[in-house]
């Protein structure tokens, strides 16, 4: 599979979850494990252009896939515009949900570049912020949309 633009070949046990593979085998710990039951969205990554929960995918299901994790969002040390908006609007409190939130926001803006507030809240339904900091997250997504 390719991860953040680089091709890798690994042998993995079939039962290895994608999130384990990314974190434990590849050291990409920006993808978090929250609930481990496909509810919280902390483990969200992009596979072939679609956000998915990597705790509910087997690594072997992603053979040949193009994977992008939060580590792949910035380019040449420059934050992705969505990350920049999260920083500007303080779209995080403890930061645990942030990688998943950023990637879900990316998916939303890719499909709907000018979302309403309701559409933003609907689109991040699969990502929980246990600090309940949704207000600034929504502001950050709106800002990223306006700049886009």
């Amino acid at each position: 599979m390719s991860v953040n633009g680089t091709g890798y070949e690994h042998d993995v046990e079939p039962r290895t979850l994608l999130v384990q593979h990314l974190r434990d085998n590849m050291g990409l710990t920006g993808t978090h494990v929250g609930c481990d039951t496909s509810s919280c969205g902390a483990c969200t990554i992009i596979a072939n252009g679609e956000t998915v929960k990597s705790c509910t995918l087997l690594a072997v299901q992603c053979e040949g896939a193009e994977i992008k994790t939060i580590e792949g969002m910035a380019t040449n040390g420059k934050l992705h515009p969505i990350q920049e908006s999260f920083r500007e609007h303080h779209g995080l409190q403890c930061g645990f949900c942030t990688p998943g939130m950023v990637l879900s926001s990316w998916q939303l803006l890719e499909r709907n570049p000018k979302p309403s507030e309701t559409e933003i809240r609907h689109a991040i339904e699969g990502n929980f912020c246990r600090c309940t900091g949704y207000h600034n997250i929504v502001k950050a997504v709106q800002d990223a949309a306006n700049k886009g």
């Binding site: 496909s38 969200t44 956000t51 699969g126």
Partner: peptide, 9 residues
Amino acid sequence: IGDVQVRNR
């Protein structure tokens, strides 16, 4: 159904 990530898959 579920949420965006679940519906993608």
